[in-house]
Design a binder for these strands. Sequence first.
DNA 1: ACCTGAACACCGTTCAAGT
DNA 2: ACCTGAACACCGTTCAAGT
Lengths: 227, 227
Amino acid sequence: MPETPTKRGAGRPRTRVLSADQIVDAAFELARTAGTAGFSMAALARSLSVQPPALYHYFGSRGEVISAMRGRLAERIDTEGFTDPAVPLDEAVLRWARTYRDAFAAFPSGSALLATTSIDGQQGSVDNYEAITVRLLAEGWAEGDVVDTIVAFESFIIGSALDAVAPADIMSPGDAAASVPAYAAAEARRAHDAAARGIRPTDRSFELGLRAMLAGFRPGSADSSTR
Amino acid sequence: MPETPTKRGAGRPRTRVLSADQIVDAAFELARTAGTAGFSMAALARSLSVQPPALYHYFGSRGEVISAMRGRLAERIDTEGFTDPAVPLDEAVLRWARTYRDAFAAFPSGSALLATTSIDGQQGSVDNYEAITVRLLAEGWAEGDVVDTIVAFESFIIGSALDAVAPADIMSPGDAAASVPAYAAAEARRAHDAAARGIRPTDRSFELGLRAMLAGFRPGSADSSTR
DNA sequence: ACCTGAACACCGTTCAAGT
DNA sequence: ACCTGAACACCGTTCAAGT
């Protein structure tokens, strides 16, 4: 939807029409309204009332736009609990994991892209990793277990973010309910319990899994599982 | 690459050229060789030496082809441990989770697609859920926790499958190493330890996280975390 | 029924303009 | 420097053919 129907002719405009930040803003808005399938450079350009090639002055490719979106999301992840000794480790992890999942669940295709795109050089992400590493070492983690612990939590968080943006009925047995009575009953119960609590089923799965990982991950817990 | 350069004219061929199974076979081969970006109906048709519209006689859309691939992968997930009382629960979960991750890590874009596509009506998947549900109930799980437990494990597994297909250096601090000394050292240690064990770092993260979840998830463990 | 060929409405990206 | 317009090589999907 062009906000101003004034036709821009060819040539450099007198005043700058775009900015990298503005493009990223519009990209989030587009991802929210158009979804993963509708997320294209052409649609992004339309939402900004410019021609697609104009975007390439600010970003070298579609991938770079997505990478910039990822950087924005990373800013919303709260890792401050790790550097504050007054915050217990469990609490720090809970805050980190919840803000992490929320940030990426807000960008439907973000989780998958995040998970498969290299962090390399993304200064923000790396700073977060440093804070977590320092804290885990202080809590007694073996140096060789620190990154594996972070990756295991991130895998759970990213998988949970994907689940959070999945269709609400993704776990429903549908027409097959009659042939899987125990599962169908458990699934109905889950939906009912979540509704009674005023949350989504996916939210409780996340909290449950997160606490299980917290309970299972203790310093040295890796020793027995090393093969 | 056309295997036979014989030009097929218009009209129904005397003998059937395609089959649904054959298309799915070719789709896996294409996903393997061309990756997510190169996975298109046009490329799939080329690999089968047919024109793209021919595929639509067997599958209604690109999404249906992917759904069929997902069905194939689901067949490779081992849930037999859950129905065999001689197999301890932990062992059953380990087998299930490992075969699950391996199956989807073999199909790069599969994990993200799996996670965001409804299971609804997929008979194979639902049968697996029934077996797991029956076992968890027998082990003392509350009915209201069963599906959340399954979803939490699946979130971890899918996130881990994404990590397994990510670039090997995804956790490397790269140029930022100097500014994050503790993390850089821990990351180098992780890479070194994995190499010494003859495995990939991502494999150990998976095993570590899986065992943490197993240790943390016990019947009734949800009670204290319900909010 | 099962394929080709033509067609439609899209893409991402490049590049020569114009100011 | 920063935009438009034209162009290229692709897409997914539909539909009218042909046998």
